[in-house]
């Protein structure tokens, strides 16, 4: 059989058609500007904090587009030959896999001088992305309901929280992060197949305590804010922003710490402005911009030695000692199995 139409040709075929009508052609027409994606919402401040000063400094013009990790990945996959972006913002685990599958190009450490002043792991494994905002996982609580501090991830098993907690749904990558936290806790600092199995056993025990599984991180924040539930594992930046607006919401950072979850900027292969992209990354990792980003997003900076205004400190997660790195290779090969198990064994 001589059927040799491969995926790439098919995907490119569909993409080319869409591209002629949408951003592809127009992007080419004005390729002088650097196209960068972000997640929208709080990230709108990037224009003021990064894009505008970047242009004022005469470094180049930046245009932002709102994409989620999933939509950005779909676009660089389907428009590989002529990607609509120069830099895409995705979570690290996806960035890594997109790199391994050949959709984003690796960076060399030498490409970006400012990497010298950042925490280890800022340049992702394989060089496929550069983290510019650091997030981790913590516990978000309704302070009215949780009066005893939660010092360990295992505190979710406390009887007083029965029916008052939510966990991330399998459809969110967050479920993997929570699984890693539990596995690392029960495995005494080690994440391997045995500790993952152990973690699943514990999680199955936890099922009666779970009010529901959230399919969007914002649901967890809303439920805690309304007091419908007492505690939720949540992304740290989300906890920070909710705490700033709702006095009843608080944070606990378990003694076992949380995973290193940078949001990466990565460059699709065949991006049109690779040099400008590297210039932009160098700029966004500078101490000056990192300071502004930390204050603007309430994110943990990736650059070291950043001073955060005192009035924002109570809302922020600055305890970087408690953040531990993830073995992206191991996670990438296993995460689909884990998601399946989570769906079938935990979220059922």
């Amino acid at each position: 059989m001589t059927f040799k139409l491969n995926r790439r040709e098919l995907v490119v075929g569909a993409g080319a058609m869409a591209a002629t009508l949408s951003s592809g052609k127009f992007a080419q027409a004005q390729s002088a500007a650097l196209k960068v994606t972000h997640f929208g919402g709080p990230y709108q401040v990037l224009q003021d904090l990064v894009g505008a000063p970047f242009e004022r400094a005469g470094l180049g013009r930046v245009e932002y587009e709102v994409e989620t990790t999933a939509s950005a990945l779909a676009k660089i996959q389907s428009q590989k030959a002529s990607p609509p972006f120069d830099l895409v913002m995705m979570s690290r685990s996806i960035t890594y896999r997109a790199g391994r599958a050949g959709f984003v190009a690796p960076f060399e450490r030498a490409d970006i001088a400012a990497l010298a002043g950042t925490v280890p792991g800022t340049l992702g494994p394989g060089g496929f992305g550069v983290g510019y905002v650091l997030d981790t996982f913590g516990i978000m609580v309704d302070k009215r309901q949780v009066t005893q501090p939660m010092t360990s991830w295992m505190d979710f098993w406390r009887p007083d929280l029965r029916g008052k907690i939510v966990l991330p749904a399998a459809s969110l990558g967050l479920s993997i992060y929570f699984l890693l936290c539990i596995a690392r806790t029960v495995g005494n600092g080690k994440i391997d197949d045995a500790s993952i199995d152990e973690a699943f056993k514990k999680l199955i025990e936890l099922k009666p305590s779970v009010r529901t599984f959230y399919t969007d991180p914002i649901q967890a924040s809303q439920l805690v804010e309304r007091g419908d539930i007492a505690a939720a594992p949540q992304l740290s930046i989300r906890i920070s922003n909710t705490m700033r607006s709702a006095a009843t919401v608080g944070r606990f950072t378990p003694n076992e710490g949380g995973p290193f979850l940078p949001f990466d900027l990565s460059m699709p292969v065949s991006a049109k402005n690779p040099e400008l992209a590297k210039k932009y990354l160098n700029y966004i990792l500078s101490k000056e911009v990192q300071t502004k980003l930390a204050a603007g997003l309430l994110a943990t900076p990736v650059a070291t030695g950043i001073d955060v205004p005192a009035e924002l400190r109570p809302f922020m997660m600055l305890d970087t000692d408690k953040i531990w790195p993830i073995d992206e290779d191991y996670v990438a090969t296993k995460s689909r199995d884990w998601t399946t198990r989570w769906t079938r064994e935990v979220q059922s």
Binding site: R97, S171, L172, Y214, T215, D216, R336, T339, S348
Partner: peptide
């Protein structure tokens, strides 16, 4: 199903989305 429903009671459309995005399948 995604916003009002129970993640324990899985429905087809969100499941397709999850397969494509979370599972990269």
């Amino acid at each position: 199903p995604q916003v009002l429903g129970s993640p324990r009671f899985r429905m087809l459309a969100p499941a397709i989305y999850a397969e494509a995005t979370t599972n990269l399948s």
